[in-house]
Each structure stands twice: as C-alpha cells, then as structure tokens.
Design a protein around this nucleic acid. Structure first.
Lengths: 164, 164
DNA sequence: TAAATATATATGCACTTGCATTGAATGGAG
DNA sequence: CTCCATTCAATGCAAGTGCATATATATTTA
C-alpha cells in the first residue's frame, strides 16, 4: 500500500480491557527500547574498531560450535531471514571468512564453514563485543538480574510448541 | 574498512574470567533473540494488514501524548537516529499524518504534530499492534513475569547518569 | 514414472539505514 | 559586534533489508 494515499476510515476503539495487556505492552515497549539502546552502542563500538557487524560474529560462532552448517540451520539458530542470511554469507564468503561447499546428499543444500581467517576475525571481534556487552548490560544489571532477564527473554523467543 | 581485505593479525584470547560476564552475555544474546523473534512478527502483522511500520505508531503516539514536539524530542524519546527520524518525518508528512511547523523562538527547530488523519491512522493500527503484542508477549509470559521483564529491561535503556 | 508439491537457496527491485557531511541558526567568549 | 563552537535538521551516497519471485532439487502423490 502506498501510504501517501492513506485515508482514515474506521476508527477502532482501543481495547485495553485488563491489566494483563498493560504489563505485556510495557514489556514490549521496554524490549524495543532496550534493544535500540544497547544494540546501537554495540554496533558502533564494532564499527569504531573497524570490525564488521554483529551478525558476522554470530555466524562465525555458530559455525565454530557446530561444524559446517547449512544456511537453513543458521537461519533457525540466528533467527535471520532466509534472503538476508543468503546475502550475509555472500559477503562473508567474499571476505574469505567462510566457505561454501556443495552438499553431496542433497544438491539443494550447501555446507558453510568458517575459515581460519574467519576464526581469527571472530576472536578479534570478541574483546570489542565483550566490552560493549559489559557496558550495555553488566553496568546496568546485577548478576542476579542479568540471569533473571536472560531466563525471561528466552521465553519470548521460544517457539509456541515448547512453551504453550 | 573493506572487509574483502581483512587479514587476521592479532589473536586475542577470550576473557570470560567470571560468571558475572557470562550471565550478562546470556542476557545479551537472549535480548537479541527475543527482539528478532517478536519484532519480525509484529512488523509482518502490520504489513499483512496494509499498515505502515511500527515507528509510525510510536511517533504518532508520542505526538498525541506530548502535543507538538521537535524532532529532537522525538529522537530522545524513541531512541531513533537523527537522520532516520528526519526521513521518517518526511515520509509521514508526505502521507499527511504529521505536519511540520516553523518554530518562532528558534529557527533551527520545528514543531511536528499529528494530523487528524494521523490520529486515525494510529488508532487503526492499534488492534493489529495489540494483537501482535499479545501473541508475542502475553502468550509467553505470565503478567507477573511481564511486569518483571519490563522493570529489568527499563534499566538497560536508562542513561548512565540515572542508574550508576 | 509423470506430475504436483515442498524445500533450499538466490536475486531483482524498491525502500530503509548508516555514515559523513552540509546548511542554517543560536549562544557565548573576547 | 564579530568570531567560533554548538545545536538542529537535511542529504548524497553506499550498503543492508524486505518482498516477491525465480531456480534448482527433492519428495510425495496419483
């Protein structure tokens, strides 16, 4: 839809019938805010250190942990969109930090693995990344609070099947 | 830096000396995951309903709450980058949902206000937005947990001055 | 086995974002 | 009052993102 053409039609009344919705709403707003606030700092720290964006770290870490993975696997683990991941791997392959390899069993698939250069890059990103996390999280929360928030946030990204 | 040219140099050892860092790290990872998981769903729901992105709602809500605001004010409240907000207001003004007005006291500034059309748009977005929040948050957390997570997340986006 | 359906990945295109910079106006120091 | 540093906002350009779709292969169905 072209938003230049928006015309108001139906005025829906707001439905905030119970407190349950209000706390959920507040949690939502704070999630957005916390994310905007912290992520931008971390990304800036990486850029300032002439390092690539966060996703590179995430991909490299998954690949080092899990041996070669298919893009599809990375997609699930990192919650990235298929087309974004495809191009992210393009860029990382161009930079020589990952390699694609044909998958013999299923020609639709491919194996992606980190190169030694990729592992070195990930390691060189870690101090900056860790520092930014310390700044963004550790300086604002006690260890107990951090543990708690980790637990609660995990529920938000869990799939419906497992958490009801 | 051009990442096509990256060459590994210094291999920094990872520094995870204490459990404090580990919980902070986990909180960080879960924050990213929760955000990716929930935001994409909400944005998709809005798109599917032929509605503009989330930021439009946020801007309109702030404007309705706080009377006309300067872009600078919105920037602080919504934690958006200056250049992004500038163009967001461009788009919203083109769509006729906000208006810019010259500020007489300070010619650098401007007042941005929601038009009736803008208010109608915000109201029409709310049911979709609320439904998506219910789906993303309310279905995964008890009210008590939602309240708790709201409190904890708020600390993450608070400025250093106020939270030490 | 042929056809239909499903899965894994890539890509054209329009739009959005980030960085760096610019332009304009204000406020303060000398 | 003039110069300079600061603040508010806009913009050119390169890069990233989302949608829709394309391409290729695998799996299921008839």
């Amino acid at each position: 839809m072209n938003w230049l053409e928006f015309r108001p039609m139906e005025i829906c009344t707001e439905d905030r019938t119970n407190a349950c919705t209000e706390v959920a709403e507040r949690a939502w707003v704070q999630l957005i805010r916390a994310h905007r606030s912290t992520l931008s700092k971390v990304e800036r720290a990486l850029r300032a250190a002439d390092l690539p964006p966060l996703e590179w770290y995430d991909v490299l870490l998954e690949l080092e942990r899990g041996g070669p993975l298919r893009p599809r696997d990375l997609q699930d683990r990192l919650l990235l969109a298929q087309y974004n991941l495809s191009r992210l791997i393009d860029r990382m392959a161009s930079a020589g930090v990952v390699e694609r390899e044909r998958c013999s069993e299923d020609a639709r698939c491919q194996w992606v693995r980190a190169t030694p250069k990729g592992e070195a890059l990930r390691k060189s990103m870690w101090p900056i990344y860790a520092g930014a996390i310390r700044e963004a999280v550790q300086s604002k929360l006690t260890p107990s609070q951090a543990r708690q928030i980790g637990d609660l946030l995990e529920r938000l990204s869990s799939c419906p099947a497992t958490c009801g």
